[in-house]
Computed example of a mutant assay.
Amino acid sequence: MTINKAVTAFGGFMVLLSVLLTWTVSPYWAWLTVFVGFNLFQSSFTGFCPAALIFSKLGFKPS
């Protein structure tokens, strides 16, 4: 799996997790969705993605 696919999968998982936690635990978990969305948005402009750095250190291949 490439880093780009891993970042996309991780972002989707985090959004789904935050929706589930918002629905079952507390509405404050919606801030996790905001955080993930902001990181995806800023990485599209800056090219800096913390998750991509972690995945590259874990041995995922660049695209």
Rank of each mutant, 00 (worst) to 15 (best):
T2I: 04
I3Q: 01
N4L: 04
A6G: 14
T8W: 02
T8C: 00
A9R: 10
A9W: 03
F10V: 10
G11V: 03
G12P: 04
F13M: 13
F13A: 12
V15D: 13
L16H: 09
L16P: 06
L17D: 01
V19T: 04
V19I: 14
V19A: 10
L20T: 09
L21D: 03
T22Y: 05
W23Y: 14
T24H: 10
T24C: 00
S26H: 04
S26I: 01
S26G: 06
Y28N: 14
Y28I: 13
Y28M: 15
Y28P: 13
W29T: 12
W29S: 10
W29F: 15
A30Q: 12
W31M: 12
L32I: 14
L32F: 10
T33A: 08
T33G: 06
V34C: 04
V34S: 01
V34Y: 02
V34W: 07
V34H: 10
F38E: 00
F38T: 11
N39M: 15
L40S: 01
F41E: 08
F41L: 15
Q42M: 10
Q42C: 03
S43Y: 00
S43F: 01
F45Y: 06
T46F: 02
T46D: 08
T46N: 05
F48E: 00
C49G: 08
A51P: 01
A51V: 12
I54C: 05
F55Y: 11
S56D: 14
S56I: 00
K57C: 11
K57E: 14
L58W: 03
G59T: 09
F60Q: 07
F60W: 02
F60N: 04
K61G: 05
K61A: 13
P62L: 06
S63T: 04
